[in-house]
Write a protein that binds this DNA or RNA. Structure first.
Lengths: 127, 127
DNA sequence: CTGAATCCGCGGGGATACTG
DNA sequence: CAGTATCCCCGCGGATTCAG
């Protein structure tokens, strides 16, 4: 999926092609900074909108709502509205969301592990 | 790192804050569609520019060069120039790059695994 | 073939105001 | 407090051109 070498370009199988385009679409949704940061911020906890806004450093109101909608649409987060006043909305990772979280952790771990190496590489390159 | 709850906001420790901002920078570099797709396209192989352009479906000339520069700068890909005519340039993942590839595979695997679930969630949401 | 540079349009994304 | 809508601008990113 996603990359060419893994796809069988059988022109007669429209289903595979459709599934692949869907996979690429999901990949594009998920492989972006904010979506991943939100996912990690949620973790095992359930947070309200304003808390999330504080946890995900630097995210704007707009980006947060946009990405939350997207994550909700893809079934990665569960959105629970309490019809109180003032309103309260809780966000929680669903099972797929928690599963994705594992991969985010992997990226974070990777970043941590190679931080020094990357810093060095940059210094070397910037000359 | 990256998210607030993992950071200790000790105002006296400027080093930690710097490392954190660096981590967020690297995360932003790496957590983007094209960088990840290029990384996976490379895999264990070494490809030239034009081959990469074919492998990474839909990427433009400009985005490819830009991301390759970025990956090279961070020491994730090795760039080997053959001073022939016409010129030939080979790209290969370095060890950090191959390590990152593992996490990309994880995301791809995740996509694959939850594709059906996500498709369903979308259908439910789009009503 | 690789890649830097230029032009340019479109959309991402911030700020703000307004509803419930 | 949560969310939508509007305005608006900057920068991403595509197309094209030029160089080596």
């Amino acid at each position: 999926m996603v990359t060419k070498q893994l796809r069988e370009d059988l022109p007669e199988d429209a289903d595979l092609r459709r599934a692949d385009s869907l996979a690429r679409e999901i990949f594009s949704d998920v492989a972006n900074k904010w979506a991943l940061l939100i996912t990690e911020a949620l973790g095992e906890r359930t947070l309200r909108f304003s808390e999330l806004r504080n946890e995900v450093e630097g995210i704007s109101h707009k980006m947060l709502t946009q990405n939350l909608r997207m994550l909700e649409r893809n079934g990665l987060v569960d959105r629970k509205v309490y019809p109180t006043v003032p309103p309260r909305v809780d966000y929680t990772l669903t099972e797929p969301g928690r599963a994705l979280r594992g991969t985010v952790d992997a990226i974070c771990g990777w970043t941590h592990q190679y931080l020094g190496s990357i810093e060095d590489a940059r210094r070397r390159f910037d000359t």
